[in-house]
Design a protein around this nucleic acid. Structure first.
Length: 261
DNA sequence: ATGCCGGGCGAAGCCCGA
């Protein structure tokens, strides 16, 4: 079995004890990290290596940042999302994991938030979603096992947010965002978590403010999208709420899926 | 209506996130 997890850690430096504990306790084979907020030189490679993980990083000072951790060798295939040479934000890394007989392609994705929606941030998000769909379409053409995982900053339906009315005009819930996410999924992906959990109001993010975690008022915005070749191997998937309840947590918690070998 | 909380940066208070 191959376990692949995605986790927006909100700073790898601030979260390092939580991340190391979680890796040691749960031991996923591949981890897709977002919002590392660290340049590559400052990435805690030694501590993570001591737990048996290789790593590949796309870093940026202060903001964004994505990484892939893997117990198996990592062959980096892309360090930015194709389609906009001028986009210098560290939001995408793609690699092939050599996990024995059947390699798997993964990407760690940190999609732009898009708020406030009356600024250039919103069209940037929508364009990024369009670029992701274009690239994903090309990747599907490879007919490989592929997992596009990360913080999509898209809450796909009203069942994925505690207060749909209150969030109606937010960039995470706006119809323009949801339409593009649907178009991406409809290219042929499986939402791994939803394949096992049809029930509403299960979340991967809870705001630090206003006691959202204590009241379980969150959003499901972290997703693992599987190509048909990966979905054929899908054995299980869930949200691991454990890290969100610990000391000094990230505001996101890990989402994982298990693929048969 | 805005801030709530929390991280980065850098050494106070602003920017940013979702």
């Amino acid at each position: 079995m191959l376990r692949i997890a995605t986790w927006n850690v909100n700073s790898i430096k601030a979260r390092l004890p939580r991340v190391l504990d979680w890796l040691a306790d749960t031991g996923p084979d591949v981890v897709l990290l977002q919002e590392t907020k660290s340049v590559e030189e400052a990435f805690p490679a030694l501590e993570i290596g001591d737990l048996g993980y290789n790593h590949a990083v796309v870093g940026q000072k202060s903001y964004n940042g994505v990484a892939i951790l893997s117990k198996h060798p990592i062959e980096v295939e892309a360090t930015s999302l194709p389609g906009d040479e001028g986009d210098e934000q560290a939001r995408y890394i793609e690699a092939v994991i050599d996990s024995g007989a059947r390699p798997i392609r993964v990407a760690s994705i940190y999609l732009p938030n898009g708020n406030p929606t009356d600024t250039e941030k919103f069209p940037y998000k929508l364009a990024w979603l369009d670029r992701l769909r274009e690239h994903a379409q090309a990747l599907l053409g490879l007919e490989e096992a592929l997992v596009l995982g990360g913080d999509y900053n898209v809450c796909p339906t009203d069942a994925d947010v505690y207060d749909p009315e209150g969030w109606r005009d937010d960039a995470l819930c706006r119809p323009e965002s949801r339409q593009r996410f649907r178009a991406l999924v409809y290219e042929g992906f499986t939402d791994a978590f939803r394949a096992f959990h049809p029930e509403p109001h299960l979340y991967s993010f809870w705001d630090y403010q206003a006691g959202r975690w204590q009241k379980d008022q969150g959003l499901r915005i972290d997703h693992l999208l599987l190509s048909p070749q990966a979905a054929d191997r899908l054995a299980d998937s869930d949200i691991d709420r454990g890290p969100r309840g610990k000391e000094k947590p990230s505001d996101h918690t890990p989402v994982w899926c298990d693929l048969e070998d």
